[in-house]
Design a protein around this nucleic acid. Structure first.
Length: 901
RNA sequence: GCCCGAGUGGCGAAACUGGUAAACGCAGAGGACUUAAAAUCCUUAGCCGUAACUGGCGUGUGGGUUCGAUUCCCGCCUCGGGCACCA
């Protein structure tokens, strides 16, 4: 979609792609020679083009579709090890499914709006767009070099108008439907990024991007009504169960934070013209009779109003002003002192009639519930502490079973279950039942009702930045905010822009860009100068991947046929951001009919890969050291013992970064991929280890030599007897037996690797299984003189099974084995039960649960035969002699346990 | 504080539904090839004991269920993650 890189070669081609790759193997395995050659061959054959749903002859393609993608990168210009791991996993699945006969769509694109481009513009005086386009070009080179099997015809880049025009349309539609709205609120302000942040972009009070402290600012901003979908996002997690990591689902559940409770209205003793009551949200309506005062947030609309004209006015105003000025981290800190201030006003408890003083409390949050809380000091710890501090009454209304609490003797709040007391008609009820009954009673009297509250807040999307998607709105003095008319879309960013670190949005300081006319009255109006949060682009890019060139909408019918995404791969750090937003967008677009109504979830299956970590060394004098600055655990500069830090995130500061391309230059892409896949299961942390990389490289060398050895054998023929070397003496093994053994190993391996890749997604064990096959083959090859059918199948199977992980070397070996079609497009091997079946079994014999012997028995041996053989065994005899067999447990084909006494 | 997840050799890890613990790889030891080294190939390899094994111990820790527990249940310890004045 970006003309400058559309159709561009992702692969540098040092050797001309015309040459039909060599059919015979070079003497020595040289990945630098092999890999670019096959990358060129794949490209020449357009091997990875996603097949359309309908074949050229008009008949539907019968193959199942498989849409797989990784979380797309920000085009920083550099590829790091985390990317390599992420993309290696995706490429294995894409290649394996292609071989398994799926219609695979495996695209790649660029999350290309964002702050680094703008910072580069300030620092290096390059336009963000030029900087970004250049980076995209330079990142495609290493991706090609890794052998990724992307279909580049589906590439997209989110900073291109062809992409974001659809986002602007989505925004306008949301505005029209009331899902995008403006709201004045206290927002998170990152001074270093000079912009606001959404709640989920604040981590421990710090900006998720630059780690600087986030302050609060009162600003009017654009919000998206994601809370409208909170319940659905929660409900539909059922269909993700077992297909998404539990951890991610759990994080989303926590983030959404649904709680059931009641809204209860407390009449003001002295009603105001604008309000006669204060409404609270509580999850404990059962404790209503114990509510003795009320706490409201400093930001509550009535906070300053209630004290007006009372002697408390000055004190309350000072308190409220002070609390409002405090930032979020301060207010959330562990040592934050709970304080309050009496407003002078009272409300009436609807159950007891008691007059309850209304306090402003610094720990009550305005943006949860109603910003007001009924305080029940006997049954809520915060209220208890507050009541003690300000000498407020405490009433016990819940009694635990077998105990009688009294208010005066309480040292902390009782928050658990119990029976109601002092609660009028509800006394004696179990508190869970009372929650429902009291809520129903309030509802009947029009004083409240059952409700649900969410911790999730609406998504703040305004950003005071240049390099983002313009919000397509116009503000007219007469008509307020109006969407830019369809004919004027997309709203483009001005190119003549000055980047100076002013702390203000560059768009706002542009002299003319913001001047426009009102679409209704044609009078002078002002363009919205804020741009959208970068997470907007990634909320729907997976849809656009299916038809990136389609101008008539987000996606066309052909594109629809690929949805939903069958497999998504990325980091779990996006659990509460991108992965919630995308689910929100999918539901919304489905509701609008843009997507099928039945399509409620974007990603069928999610795999979250772990981080790549590496050891770091630190010297007390010279700080972090590069690996080459450490010898025998000592700093080479001063000879001091260096501190060995394990499992550190790869980072420039820790000086423990491994450059992917340096690795590829040294070992080749296949080795780099293989190590990422082999050293750990995909979802756990990967500890970088150079020796492990060597190990993977050696394995590929062994496989290469194995095929060479096979090719050196004379042509086929029927299986002849094989010389077997056992304990240094040559023994003839009947050819038929050797063949059966080899078939058995081969087919067992096919089964293991197939389930490991397609079902369990455990690539480390898949590779281990192939290594075992390779080891067995090495063993067989020592004794074979000719290429027998079993040997041929075993060698070809090993090469095929490894192809998704190490595609280049396997392609090379495949062709050397005499094939002319591309391995990347050939069929996945099929496991045959009858060939894998064992003819002999090893049965473990236990006596009283302890292993005492192993028996090799024919596969069809009966329990009786096995028991007899076991009893004849010397060791078994030794432990059962003179005792009687009480019980024998036989686990078919595995184990026999004799219980003796 | 609440809620998850994980603790297995010198290291990364494996063990599918309760059934041979440590597959596969790394590092180690011994050997072959080599003038030598590298590379490669072969053998060995949890710990303790033993002349030897068919011995004892062994999956963070203490219990329990079971013929049998890395796997299930209860308590504890450690590490990692999420949420956190959410009423």
């Amino acid at each position: 979609m970006n003309p400058s890189h559309e159709g561009a070669s992702p692969t540098p081609t040092p050797t001309p792609p015309t040459a039909a790759p060599a059919a015979s193997l070079a003497e020595k395995y040289d990945p630098q020679q092999v890999e670019p050659r096959w990358q060129a061959a794949w490209q020449a054959a357009q091997a990875f083009r996603a097949p359309p749903a309908v074949c050229a002859d008009g008949t539907p393609d019968p193959r199942p579709k498989y849409f797989i993608m990784e979380m797309f990168p920000y085009p920083s210009g550099r590829l790091h090890m985390g990317h390599v791991r992420n993309y290696s996993i995706g490429d294995v699945l894409a290649r394996a499914h292609r071989m398994k006969g799926h219609r695979v769509l495996y695209p790649m694109g660029w999350d290309s709006f964002g702050l680094p481009a703008e910072n580069a513009a300030i620092k290096a005086k390059v336009h963000p767009r030029d900087w970004t386009v250049k980076n995209i070009e330079s990142m495609k080179v290493p991706l090609g070099r890794l052998g990724q099997s992307y279909d580049w015809t589906h590439e997209l880049s989110t900073c291109e108008p062809e992409y974001f025009v659809h986002e602007q349309r989505i925004f306008i539609e949301m505005f029209k439907k009331g899902l995008a709205y403006r709201k004045g609120a206290l927002v998170n302000w990152c001074a270093s990024c000079a912009t606001v942040l959404a709640n989920e972009q604040v981590e421990d009070g710090l900006c998720w991007r630059c780690q600087s402290v986030v302050a609060q600012r009162e600003l009017v901003q654009w919000f998206l009504r994601i809370t409208e979908y909170a319940q659905q996002i929660l409900d539909d997690m059922g269909q993700l169960q077992g297909k998404w990591p539990d951890k991610v689902l759990h994080m989303q559940e926590n983030w959404i934070g649904r709680s059931e409770g009641a809204r209860i209205r407390f009449p003001l003793q002295n009603p105001l013209p604008e309000a006669s009551e204060i409404e609270v949200f509580t999850t404990r309506p059962d404790t209503l009779f114990g509510a003795t005062f009320m706490s409201i947030a400093a930001e509550h609309p009535l906070a300053l109003r209630l004290c007006k004209g009372t002697p408390h006015e000055a004190e309350v105003t000072a308190f409220v002003t002070r609390v409002r000025a405090e930032d979020k981290i301060r207010r959330g800190a562990d040592d934050y002192v709970k304080e309050g201030c009496f407003t002078g006003a009272h409300v009436q408890n609807p159950a007891t009639g008691r007059l309850m003083p209304v306090y402003i409390a610094n720990f009550v949050l305005m943006d949860y519930g109603t910003g007001a809380v009924m305080a029940v000091p006997a049954h809520d710890q915060r209220d208890f502490e507050f009541a003690q501090k300000y000498a407020l009454p405490i009433e016990v209304v819940i009694q635990p079973a077998g105990q009688t609490l009294s208010a005066s003797a309480l040292t902390s709040a009782y928050t658990d279950a119990g029976t109601l007391v002092e609660s009028g008609a509800f006394s004696g009820q179990d508190n869970e039942a009372a929650k429902k009954n009291i809520t129903a009673w309030l509802a009947e009297r029009g004083q409240g009702g059952q409700t649900v509250s969410f911790r999730l807040r609406d998504w703040l999307v305004s950003r005071q930045r240049y390099w983002g998607c313009p919000i397509p709105m116009v503000e007219c003095p007469a008509h307020g905010y109006q969407p830019v008319p369809e004919a004027e879309l997309p709203v483009l960013l001005p190119t003549d822009i000055e980047f100076v670190p002013s702390g203000q949005s560059p768009l706002a300081s542009h002299p003319t860009w913001k001047n426009t006319t009102c679409p209704i009255c044609q009078g002078p109006a002002r363009r919205e100068t804020d741009t959208m949060d970068g997470f907007m682009e990634s909320s729907w890019y997976f849809l656009r991947y299916t038809s990136p060139q389609y101008a008539g909408g987000i996606l066309d019918d052909a594109g629809q046929s690929f949805l939903p995404v069958d497999q998504y791969i990325g980091g779990s750090e996006h659990a509460t951001k991108h992965l919630i937003y995308s689910r929100f967008f999918t539901k919304m677009l489905s509701d609008w009919g843009v997507l099928p109504r039945t399509l409620r979830e974007p990603f069928v299956r999610l795999l979250t890969q772990g981080m790549v970590l590496k050891d770091a060394y630190r010297c007390t004098e010279h700080d972090y050291l590069y690996p080459e600055e450490v010898q025998d655990g000592r700093c080479v500069k001063c000879g001091q013992q260096a501190q060995h830090l394990r499992q550190m995130k790869m980072s420039k500061t820790f000086r423990n970064v491994v450059e992917p391309m340096a690795l590829v230059e040294k070992y080749g892409a296949d080795t780099a991929r293989l190590f990422c896949l082999f050293a750990a299961p995909p979802d756990s942390v990967l500890e970088w280890n150079e020796a492990g990389v060597e190990g993977c490289s050696r394995f590929l060398g062994r496989l290469y030599r194995l095929v060479q050895r096979y090719l050196s054998l004379k042509e086929g023929g029927p299986p002849s007897d094989v010389l077997y070397i056992v304990n240094n003496t040559a023994q003839p093994l009947p050819g038929a037996v050797a063949e059966a053994d080899l078939y058995r190993v081969t087919h067992k391996t096919i089964r293991r690797v197939t389930t490991d890749i397609f079902e369990r997604q455990q690539f480390n064990t898949a590779i281990a299984a192939i290594m075992e096959l390779s080891n067995a083959l090495t063993d067989f090859l020592h004794h074979y003189e000719a290429r027998t059918p079993a040997l041929k199948e075993a060698v070809e199977t090993a090469v095929k099974l490894l192809a998704p992980m190490a595609p280049h070397i396997c392609e090379e070996l495949w062709h050397a084995l005499g094939h002319s079609e591309l391995l990347a497009l050939s069929a996945w091997p099929i496991y045959k039960e009858d060939l894998a079946r064992d003819d002999k079994l090893t049965i473990v014999v236990q006596v009283n649960g302890k292993k005492r012997a192993e028996l090799l028995v024919p596969a069809d041996a009966s329990e009786q035969q096995i028991t007899q053989q076991a009893l004849a065994d010397g060791a078994v005899r030794q432990f059962s002699e003179g005792k009687t067999i009480k019980k024998a447990i036989y686990v078919k084909g595995r184990l026999l346990n004799l219980v003796v006494a």
